[in-house]
């Protein structure tokens, strides 16, 4: 399964974007290997309407199972809900994409500890 983190730039040092539809970049990571990081352009940050729905469709094309962002519009949420994509909202303003990936990595270590 893959996860999207919305980002303001195309490297892991860039800031996490609290908006889903209008985030300039999607950071795509593989849940099985958190070091495999790709950045995808989101083409809709400047369109006037349907940014959230278009972004949701793009996310579906990338076959993601989970999206981490700050806020989702209700239309985008509907599309993602219907396609069984997990939505995660966190409201940490000023944090980088790398910091969020670190949080996810900590989880992995934790769950390994528990399973051992």
């Amino acid at each position: 399964m893959k996860t999207i983190i919305t980002s303001t730039g195309n490297d892991t040092k860039s800031q996490f974007d609290l908006r889903f539809g209008r985030a300039p970049y999607f950071c795509l990571i593989d849940d099985n290997n958190l070091d495999e990081i790709e950045f995808h352009n989101n083409y809709f940050p400047y369109s006037n309407n349907k940014a959230g729905v278009s972004a949701a469709e793009k996310a579906l094309n990338l076959k993601v199972g989970k999206i981490i962002s700050g806020e989702f519009g209700h239309q985008a949420k509907e599309v993602l809900d219907n396609n069984n994509v997990q939505i995660v909202m966190i409201n940490n303003e000023n944090c980088t994409v790398a910091e969020i990936i670190d949080r996810l990595k900590n989880n992995e270590n934790l769950s390994k500890l528990i399973s051992n």
Binding site: I68, D81, Q86, I87, V88, M89, I90, N91, N107, L110
Partner: peptide, 19 residues
Amino acid sequence: EAKFTIPKTINNHICPMCT
């Protein structure tokens, strides 16, 4: 303090950010 949804396809019910 993360807010999230749990779609039908997910079996293990844990917080996606901190497990």
